[in-house]
Design a protein around this nucleic acid. Structure first.
Lengths: 207, 207
DNA sequence: GTGTCATATGACACTACTGTCATTTACTTG
DNA sequence: CAAGTAAATGACAGTAGTGTCATATGACAC
């Protein structure tokens, strides 16, 4: 976490620093991102950076949790899930991911890179216990829907959670690679409906 | 591609170099992998390396295509797909991925990292046209199965290809993270069957 | 105005590489 | 063996960073 000195800075200066850091992480990824370039972009002296942050990981942790995490969260929070169909919740989850990407492409990109980080030690250092929250949410949701008969009890919950996380992140990646898909012209929603159709009915679709 | 000088080396020396390079790529990933460390491990002089390879990307390309690619390929090649059920082909695809990981964990790891590379330019440089081969294989397979009535024609082919690729790589990753799953004690196959069940029947499973 | 504290600053020493090149060595063949 | 070619070698110059530290500056308190 940054030092008190950093938090004492004016909002403008903090924003200047964070923006430059986000740019650098976005452009070069965690590994190749260089503090030298970032302080150059933000036009702050080298010494100052080390007065604010311990090192690159310290800066990254702050950005992932306090910048990326908090903004992303706000996109998937406001609905009354209890009354919604499971597939509609999934749809909203996927769409909120795309909307986040559209509004904050750099932050979304950084988030995606973070999710794909192989170094689990680093990931754990950064996330602490908050990684479990998403898992709990899905687990409760799925088990609730099983009891309502909306999801077959033959489906393994853990497997379905993994499955959903996988296709969710791949859906956003697919959107990024095919940027001509947009929510506005509906192509994206058509694609999404195809995917949810497959998820719901399986290959045979003959119910 | 390596120079003729490299190919002229004895098999032992080539193996020594490739093994050291594979180790380094495995341990540090493409970005952080250092030629300095690798030549140190292989105990070849710096000048020699540059007599064999142009640079890191040249070495990487060679390893991806001629070492990883060719070995991986051999795991999913020998069956008579035409007579098999679609789900059994999928099963074999997933299992062959796990078997490859078990026999060649470093190579499999390098392959997974390669698939997740964000720099599409680099990826294209390395793969050339061979990236399209896998896609064609699945496309033919799926359309063939649609005409046989094994897969519903309501399913979008492109989407299904993407879907399968996604869950395939996620399946191997899931296996890596849960190493207690093994083919020997059947846990892995049970998990795989659950996944294929979901893929086949969808969430409702009430056909 | 002086002391004190927080903060700002950039030169510096250090680390970890990369790619080159002049020189040496080894191998081959007439 | 002598000449000629292929390959091996490691010192070197250059690049791109990291983290530190002595010093400078500004602001406020008395």
């Amino acid at each position: 976490m940054p030092t008190q000195t950093f938090f004492n800075l004016s909002e403008d200066k903090k924003k200047l620093i964070i923006d430059a850091a986000v740019d650098e992480f976005f452009e070069n990824g965690y590994e190749k991102m260089s503090i030298a370039k970032m302080i150059n972009k933000a036009r702050i002296p080298r010494g100052s950076f080390y007065q604010y942050f311990e090192d690159k990981q310290d800066l990254y942790t702050f950005i992932i949790i306090n910048i990326v995490g908090s903004k992303k969260h706000s996109y998937f929070e406001n609905s009354n899930f209890d009354k919604m169909k499971f597939l509609d919740i999934m749809k909203e989850l996927f769409v909120s991911g795309v909307n986040f990407y559209k509004d904050e492409p750099k932050l979304a990109s950084i988030a995606t890179e973070f999710l794909n980080i192989k170094d689990l030690e680093l990931k754990r250092n950064i996330l602490g216990d908050s990684q479990k929250l998403g898992h709990e949410f899905f687990k409760n949701l799925i088990e609730n829907r099983k009891s309502r008969g909306e999801i077959s009890k033959d489906i393994d919950t853990e497997m379905l959670i993994y499955f959903i996380n996988t296709i969710n992140s791949s859906f956003v990646e697919y959107f990024i690679e095919h940027k001509n898909l947009t929510i506005e012209n509906n192509d994206l929603l058509i694609y999404l409906d195809k995917m949810l159709f497959l998820l719901n009915n399986g290959l045979q679709s003959n119910k």
